[in-house]
């Protein structure tokens, strides 16, 4: 996993609650057996006026001019501002893969769905939960000034607005550590292989019917 570096990210506002994973990346793109290449189809049904299919050249598709990410001022956005319950629905990791591939490094919202939350951190995307009123204010500020950027400081657990206001946020220590160091979970877990084997031995003795290889 790549390390999460402090960034001054351009912010794009997606003013909609309960954005589900089907909306983030529609199912036809889940047929890919790769982890990359989902960016052009991020928010496919909102972004284009026609129906997309895998393997298509998106450059020739009609864009929905009303969709926020199609506006030139948000083209290079790295921070997505969203409403409550962002990422609800399926467990598809294609959702964070698509956000990442598009260039988003951070999503800020009042709340996130659980599985999406996990999946995002595993892919180096920082999700920041802020209260509704603060998110509301960030929406107003973003829309009011073109080129609005937020300074995302994971180390210090704060978001700094252009006028210097620091908004603190919570993130659990393990996730923060993995993100900052770009650590591979599996390698870390395998360092505890001994503990896993011990557990497994006891578990098998108590519940032999859970093991079919004996």
């Amino acid at each position: 996993m790549k390390k999460f570096e402090r960034l001054q990210g351009l912010v794009a506002p997606l003013d909609r609650a309960n954005v589900d994973t089907d909306l983030i990346i529609p199912k036809q793109f889940l047929k890919s057996i790769k982890r990359t290449g989902f960016g052009p189809n991020l928010f496919d049904e909102l972004r284009y006026l026609d129906e997309g299919y895998p393997g298509q050249d998106t450059a020739s598709r009609p864009l929905n001019p009303d969709f926020v990410l199609n506006q030139p001022r948000y083209r290079d956005a790295q921070v997505l501002l969203a409403r409550r319950n962002f990422g609800c629905g399926s467990s598809r990791e294609h959702a964070p893969w698509a956000l990442d591939d598009f260039g988003f490094r951070v999503v800020i919202a009042p709340s996130f769905a659980d599985i999406f939350y996990n999946n995002s951190f595993k892919n180096g995307i920082l999700l920041i939960t802020l209260d509704e009123a603060t998110v509301d204010r960030l929406f107003q500020e973003t829309e009011a000034s073109e080129g609005y950027r937020l300074d995302i400081d994971l180390e210090g657990q704060q978001v700094i607005t252009p006028n210097g206001e620091a908004i603190p946020f919570e993130v659990d220590a393990f996730r923060k550590h993995c993100l900052l160091e770009g650590l591979d979970d599996i390698g870390l877990t395998l360092e505890q292989a001994g503990a896993i084997r011990d557990y497994e031995g006891h578990h098998r003795a108590a519940n032999p019917w859970l093991f079919r290889d004996a």
Binding site: R35, S90, S91, R92, E93, P96, I115, N118, N119, K122, N123, D172, F174, D185, I186, T189, L190, A193, I196, E200
Partner: peptide, 21 residues
């Protein structure tokens, strides 16, 4: 029982464990 993402699928395959809260 619960759903997991693909990174976690790989984690479970490799370690028989999941990092959870």
């Amino acid at each position: 029982s619960h759903g997991i993402g693909t990174s976690e699928v790989e984690h479970v395959l490799a370690t028989q464990c999941l990092i959870a809260q």
